[in-house]
Design a protein around this nucleic acid. Structure first.
Length: 346
DNA sequence: AAAGCGGGGGC
DNA sequence: GCCCCAGCTTT
């Protein structure tokens, strides 16, 4: 086995310039007002695969409702999911709830302080473990997220980026080494790399003129910034036909909790049924398309009389229409209600 | 190593 | 409509 290593280095002057740039350009975000591990952890989980602007309001609402890890641990999962509605990747929310209970019951309510320990907790992977340990506990651990990967692909002049295991390991070693030599807070360095990627070294419309460390950038020197990283091939999303039931009774709508499903697990949705079964008792209302990362959902909406829906889809609940926000549900339920609920009276 | 998992924004 | 973004778990 051979360890690939990165020859490129970074000088103390460059690191200093990066730090100064970050101090001057750091966006004041709610989770940057603290180094409380609980708050940082919540923000990092929400920020997985999700953009900052989307996270802000969710984060503030979440913190008001669950100010401490104990509050979160004793909450019912349905109530936690309700605050996650619309954020997507709902397994994050379930694992986060498990993690809070793990921390309260097995760690005496205190998050571990090293990345190696944090890695054992549910929902915490290499990135999140290192983000928490560096930001909250000053561990010299570099983080690799999407921003860092792009910044480093350009800095090191690597068109194909850091994709396979060996390359990622080499990058990790390089980042850890830089974090160790860095004079200052390791968390600030990590945030600086990511902030640079989020605001300057962006996927498109790169602003190299404003980059504090462009001098040491291989792609910049070679004038190939725009072609790094190379676009990757993506597979076409799979097309799925979904038949859902809309049943109303006295201002309520019938929903079922997805227990066994992989998709939307833990959320309440309109009942999903076989075309065979629904076509016997339902009246077709229309359809709409909802696109996920690797699923194209064609959602067909059917009306079913209230008295028949419970045998068609057992174990559901009748939810007040104006109380939909009290339970976790995917975006397409809102869309279906908005499009197919109001045009037909009770 | 690859698949599965939501929901956005820009143009 | 098309393009883009992104981390963890499971297989």
């Amino acid at each position: 086995m051979s360890i690939v290593s990165l020859s490129h280095t970074i000088s103390a002057d460059e690191l200093s310039a990066l730090k100064d740039w970050f101090v001057a350009n750091r966006r004041p975000l709610p989770w940057r007002e603290t180094r409380d591990p609980y708050r940082v952890w919540v923000s990092e989980i929400m920020l997985q695969q999700t953009q900052v602007v989307k996270v802000i309001s969710y984060y503030e609402r979440f913190m008001q409702r669950f100010p401490t890890v104990q509050d979160l641990a004793k909450a019912h999962i349905d109530d936690v999911m309700a605050l996650w509605s619309g954020l997507g990747y709902y397994s994050r929310c379930r694992l986060m709830h498990h993690c809070s209970q793990f921390v309260v019951e097995r760690c005496d309510g205190a998050f571990p302080s090293t990345a190696a320990e944090l890695l054992h907790l549910p929902g915490i992977g290499p990135y999140t473990a290192r983000a928490i340990s560096s930001i909250c506990f000053r561990e010299s651990a570099g983080v690799i997220d999407g921003n860092v990967k792009r910044v480093m692909a350009r800095r090191h002049g690597r068109p194909s980026g850091f994709v396979n295991g060996g390359e990622k390991q080499a990058l990790q070693i390089w980042l850890d080494q830089v974090a160790t030599t860095f004079v200052g807070h390791p968390g600030d360095l990590n945030e600086a790399w990511m902030e640079l990627g989020a605001t300057i070294c962006t996927p498109k419309k790169v602003q190299c003129g404003d980059c504090p460390i462009s001098d040491g950038c291989e792609a910049y020197k070679q004038g190939v910034v725009d072609s790094i990283p190379k676009p990757r091939l993506r597979k076409a999303p799979k097309q799925v036909e979904l038949h859902v039931v809309m049943a109303r009774r006295m201002g309520h709508i019938y929903l079922v909790k997805q227990v066994a499903a992989q998709l939307f697990k833990g959320l309440y949705t309109l009942p999903m049924v076989d075309l065979e079964r629904i076509s016997r008792s339902g009246e077709r209302r229309g359809h709409f398309r909802h696109v996920l990362t690797h699923r194209k959902l064609d959602i067909h909406v059917w009306n079913v009389p209230a008295r028949e829906v419970e045998s068609l889809a057992p174990d559901g609940v009748w939810m007040m229409l104006d109380r939909l926000s009290d339970i976790g549900h995917p975006r397409w339920v809102d869309i279906a209600c908005a499009r197919f609920l109001d045009d037909k009276p009770l």
